[in-house]
Design a binder for these strands. Structure first.
Lengths: 227, 227
DNA sequence: CGTCCCCTTGAGCAGAATCAAGCCTAGTGG
DNA sequence: CCACTAGGCTTGATTCTGCTCAAGGGGACG
């Protein structure tokens, strides 16, 4: 993952890094309540980025995968409006927020950051389109395919199957459905031999059909910079 | 808008700027078809950033306001996956994409860019939550309030009323409804004395009620950097 | 004056939410 | 080791939100 860093970049990143973190499944890593600004990159494990509305409703914004940078918005706005919690046991690399401006002063790193942000932006907009313009099947299909593609980029999948450490409640929050209807949608997808979910493991039965359903033209995860 | 630029920054921006653009209402500024990478900041007028799905469905991602930077994602991925079209007559400031790395080499400008991106990300995530977790009323309320707050930041509103140069079709695409149901939702909001839409002009009748409905904790548009 | 596009309204239907109950598994304590 | 419990999954019945189809009205423009 570091292989495309130059020596100077690697050197800077090494000293920018503050500590190595570790947390158990279920632990909250970032919360809108506590004002502390945290900035880190996930190393291993999965985390969920959620927005909780005053009504108690939750919307899962994204599943954070290894290599993703988390906490940047909080750094600029001073306060997070979302929460991040570990879905599995996780390890992560904590940065020093106070020295952020130093990092941006290194042009090649600044480019990486901006690039990363552009990719994240695109990702969120795709989700928005999937949820806003499609029905339940589309939304679920898009969620699964997106995760599959992102995991594949990181070589974290096994054939056409991958672990999805979410309860159906959390999954429902991600796609904007109730658990009941989500379950029925999944049953439908299973029945049509498109994908199945068992024991917190997704198996893609028909990738082509899934692609069509999810209308993700090509969820291209071309490059991914930064540690 | 330039007032917070230092002399050096202003100087750089001046030569980074390539041309002054102008387009009529309805013109397409960026399209996923034509490969040309464009980068510009809107000066005046309004534009819509849309994602068109293979099915023909459209999702309006955001309404681009003066001061917003457009085309950054296309710069990194080489190809836009969205389209941007002028809602009114617009003027904009075109940049030279080839010299983007030079801009990022100026630390203070790099910070502005990253900051701007972080704000945009937040904005999109709020929309996602509003559409995913809420019903039609919530989604509409959020859209209107969000626009109101953003316009106010730029001093582009008049009391509790502002122009909304969208057809009901486009508005429906923005909030993820059909025109028919959007219309009924608007009628409901009108009936409850919350907001009204007439002649492409939104009037907010009860800001407090709207706030509650939209559950936008505080759509804080604190600072906005960059030209 | 006619046409086109957009807004408006109604009737009927379908997808998704709610309510409610039973089941299965893992964890707990006797 | 086994009953007990709790949380999550599964399913059915019912309700309602939002979609589809369809038709009429009004303003802008040729």
């Amino acid at each position: 993952m570091f292989k495309d860093f130059t020596v100077a970049e690697a050197e800077f990143m090494a000293q920018f890094k503050k500590a190595h973190g570790r947390a158990w499944a279920g632990e909250v890593l970032i919360s809108p309540d506590e004002p502390g600004t945290r900035l880190f990159t996930l190393y291993s494990g999965l985390a969920a980025k959620c927005r909780t509305l005053p009504s108690g409703q939750r919307q899962l914004l994204t599943v954070v995968l290894p290599g993703d940078l988390v906490g940047l918005q909080g750094l600029y706005t001073g306060k997070a409006w979302y929460s991040v919690e570990a879905l599995t046991d996780v390890t992560f690399c904590v940065f020093e927020p106070g020295r952020w401006h130093e990092l941006l002063a290194v042009p090649s790193l600044a480019k990486r950051v901006s690039w990363l942000q552009a990719l994240e932006q695109r990702h969120t907009e795709e989700r928005l389109a999937a949820i806003g313009a499609g029905d339940a099947r589309h939304s679920v299909a898009h969620f699964v395919l997106d995760l599959y593609v992102r995991l594949r980029r990181r070589r974290l999948y096994r054939e056409n199957s991958f672990a999805l450490p979410l309860t159906q409640q959390q999954l429902a929050d991600a796609v904007g459905l109730t658990t009941v209807h989500l379950h029925r949608t999944l049953r439908g997808l299973r029945h049509d031999q498109i994908l199945s979910l068992e024991n917190h493991r997704i198996t893609i039965l028909d990738l082509e059909a899934l692609r069509k359903l999810a209308f993700v033209a090509e969820v291209i995860e071309e490059e991914r910079p930064l540690l």
